[in-house]
Design a protein around this nucleic acid. Structure first.
Lengths: 140, 140, 140
DNA sequence: CACGTTCTAGAATATTCGCAC
DNA sequence: TGTGCGAATATTCTAGAACGT
């Protein structure tokens, strides 16, 4: 059997936005642990070096190297910044936890106020929603 | 007199999407004339080598190197493909012409169907909504 | 005559927000020219090294070292980012120019525009509409 | 009260994918 | 690689809102 086709079907069924899977992948990469890492209990993550995160890691996964664009996406998916010591960049979402990748499918875009209305009208199509984004990384 | 208000209006008018100015810039670059070029009468342009256009030129101006994404943008702005000899990639918009960059501001996005509805619903608020999104574009 | 005293009085009377004067002072400091600097024609400024700007310069003038907080202030005062090459941080306000510090008093908070418009809708108050945030300034 | 700082959201354009014709 | 479009996510620039001084 063609594995690529099988994976394609899996991707279709899960339909998890690439922002979530990519961010999760970054956190699973132990090479980045000095820049970005899960917190102690694994229920949030800390960007320990925002500048290096933006310049070194972001362009490998996304089409930009802007820290603020990454933060905008976090807020779109309803992550929240945790208030703690000065200058600590810690973010949390109840369905974004270490060793619990299966919860990612529960995370929804926030601006669903309009989308919910549309989905109620188009319940059939929502089953076939597909995310086949393939990152094309352009370095300069 | 209040110049700031006047300038604000000017800025609104000058809000030309970067897709249009970038595509125009590409056509003005004579180094690319063997890949993409204005046609004879200057009222359309021809992508003579789509593959090289996608891989060499697109990533210098956009965040991707996909020919189809470029074509999607052309369609969004209501460009049309000209049917002619086999395999000729020629596109046209009445306000996209050689030596007439000042016409770019007349080109509008096509998917205004939704925008029109939103505007109808927000007639009151529309008084307070100002499009400040497009800053002045300065090329070197 | 004591110029310093005169300038002090002028500053008090004009009540220019400290954000504007501090940002202007930063740009007048030639020691920072490799981090932040006026552009060629002096009608905009470029933050050449955002990270160093945030960490080295901002805390000397403000109560934080966050680049985004500085950008938020720029937008509040109606500065606009100029679109140009990727990663270039250039900002402009028509009344924020090199060698023209006397124009700073013309820069107003953006959020006042909405208040003005709201007042215009309240026809009763509109008769008495006065810009209370800009005291009378006497030049020369 | 105006201003400053922080966190989040609005709005427009950009990119991708699949479908209808 | 037929052509154009709808829809979803992504990226960017600007603004809203809360809170403190």
């Amino acid at each position: 059997m063609d594995n690529s086709k099988e994976n394609l079907i899996l991707q279709q069924q899960s339909s998890i936005p690439s922002f979530l899977t990519k961010t999760y992948d970054i956190l699973e990469n132990s090479n980045y642990s000095d820049i970005i890492q899960w917190n102690q209990d694994g229920k949030a993550f800390i960007i320990k070096k925002p500048y290096e995160f933006a310049k070194k890691i972001l362009p490998k996964y996304f089409k930009h190297n802007n820290y603020t664009s990454f933060i905008r996406q976090l807020n779109i998916y309803d992550f929240h910044k945790i208030k703690n010591e000065l200058g600590k960049h810690e973010f949390k979402h109840n369905f974004f936890q270490k060793e619990k990748k299966h919860l990612l499918c529960e995370i929804k875009r926030k601006s669903i106020e309009q989308q919910e209305q549309l989905e109620e009208n188009n319940q059939i199509q929502s089953q076939y929603k597909i995310n086949l984004y393939q990152p094309i990384i352009i370095h300069n």
